[in-house]
């Protein structure tokens, strides 16, 4: 699955996007975040419980229990500050 990072998540994780191979047990948005947290200290910290983050699935805001599918575009970013 393609995972995109924006703003401080991009700078913290060190890339704007990456292709992640997910195990079959990963079924929801929350599962993806849990899986990413196991990828190393940088991920665990950037996606820590104390951080306020938003997730978009195929360019729509997503909830933690939304189901993911192969080929989805998954984006993680902080609350927006445009305008």
């Amino acid at each position: 699955m393609k995972v995109l990072y924006f703003a401080w998540l991009r700078t913290k994780i060190g890339c704007a996007e990456e292709e992640i191979d997910l195990p079959d047990t990963v079924k929801t948005v929350g599962d993806v975040l849990d899986y990413l947290r196991t990828k190393g200290e940088v991920y665990a910290e950037a996606l820590g419980e104390d951080k306020v983050i938003r997730v978009a699935l195929n360019q729509d805001y997503a909830q933690m229990d939304d189901t993911i599918q192969n080929g989805d575009e998954f984006a993680i970013f902080p609350p927006v500050t445009g305008g």
Binding site: F6, A7, G82
Partner: peptide, 25 residues
């Protein structure tokens, strides 16, 4: 709506060239 839903993020740059991300309000 735009302020809270459109995916934009502001990075402030100071006179030493250091950037810091603006927090949402």
């Amino acid at each position: 709506f735009l302020k809270t839903k459109a995916p934009f993020w502001k990075l402030e740059e100071d006179n030493t060239g250091t950037g810091s991300w603006v927090d949402a309000r």
